[in-house]
Design a protein around this nucleic acid. Structure first.
Lengths: 195, 195
DNA sequence: TTGTAACTTGACACAGTGTAAAGTTGACAT
DNA sequence: ATGTCAACTTTACACTGTGTCAAGTTACAA
């Protein structure tokens, strides 16, 4: 046979991605194998367990969707307020892209340490983005009195959670544009004062 | 033997409650049976499945903690702003009491329809509370222009999610008092204008 | 031609939920 | 005192999904 191992790997990742994206909240190893056209056992030859496969899929999506470039834009914003807006656009706009896999990863959180760490790591990266936006606002002295940068970061991080996106966009039926608009308004109302 | 069936039932509910509260995120039917001092199978004599047992436990906690009386206070507030504060105190203060069971119920959401409906029903009840607070604010003409009552309700509902409480209190280490204070500030900043 | 990497088939261990069946025990009625 | 009944017990098993193991098969390459 001697098919290319790395080519099979990427076919696995794409199939996993597609299945998760389809919203079927019960993507089993056998479903993925069937979609790729290999046996369930062959899957384990490439990825030792489900958590590893999901984590690899996350990285795959990050590369394909070029998350780094998206976040880059927010780093070059002039004012703190603009930086806040740009970060909300970048991350908030990325949430729908990774929603399928985020559901799967969070569902494993409680039983699988590896999955939990992968998800937490991702969330910490978002938190760093929040902290940077808050620093930019604080640097201009526009953080409300009585709100420490630390606490402002926590609040922004909370606002930008995937769960909040789910609630507004999926449960309440908001459009992505409305979501971004209102979250920006909420963040500005609480974190930025006009002196 | 002829032990009282309803007494055993309440011992089961209390044991389930206690186990879930202990933060052990892996409460199996056998764990509960062991805690009560009966066989696993006897559990199924009283509750046909895990979802039913969890739902019954939720109702049990509601009764024990008298959630209705707590919410009553917010309904008697004079102004819209006061009503908003009172509701945030009532529900926000209740979240820690039901946190254990909420984790268990949400973990079953994706695989068990009954559990999903039980949790969603609860969240809809919270939403009604949010809608009532928003109506009170709107009735005073203090809702910001460009924000419909519907959308304001969605935003408040999002703010008051259990997931947001988890993020701030558990992940970020906030005290319950700080949580309530900042959520109130956030809600007022976005939903109430001083004319 | 022999080795090797990528696969296949088939079997099995394990955890946890839920079902089924047969037996035990204690209270209570007649 | 005896029989009935509900609350339990023990034992066993079906089912799902993950992950492991072992023995083949296939095709390319040195």
């Amino acid at each position: 046979m001697s098919r290319d191992s790395s080519e099979t790997k990427s076919r696995i990742l794409n199939a996993t991605w597609k299945l998760l994206e389809s919203g079927d909240n019960a993507v089993r190893m056998s479903d993925i194998a069937k979609a790729v056209g290999i046996s369930r056992q062959a899957l384990y030859l490439h990825y030792p367990n489900r958590a590893d496969l999901l984590v690899a899929t996350t990285k795959h999506i990050d590369t394909a969707k070029n998350i780094d470039a998206r976040l880059e834009r927010s780093r070059s914003a002039r004012t703190g307020g603009e930086r806040l807006d740009a970060f909300i656009e970048a991350w908030g706009g990325y949430i729908p892209e990774i929603h399928g896999i985020s559901v799967a990863l969070r569902a494993m959180r409680h039983t699988d340490r590896e999955a939990a760490e992968a998800w937490d790591g991702r969330m910490q990266a978002v938190r760093h983005g929040c902290a940077a936006a808050v620093r930019a606002i604080a640097g201009e002295g526009r953080l409300p009195p009585g709100l420490t940068p630390e606490r402002a970061t926590d609040l922004l991080w909370m606002l930008l959670s995937v769960e909040n996106w789910e609630r507004l966009v999926r449960d309440c039926g908001w459009s992505q544009a409305d979501y971004e608009k209102e979250i920006k308004a909420l963040a500005r109302a609480e974190l930025v004062v006009t002196p």
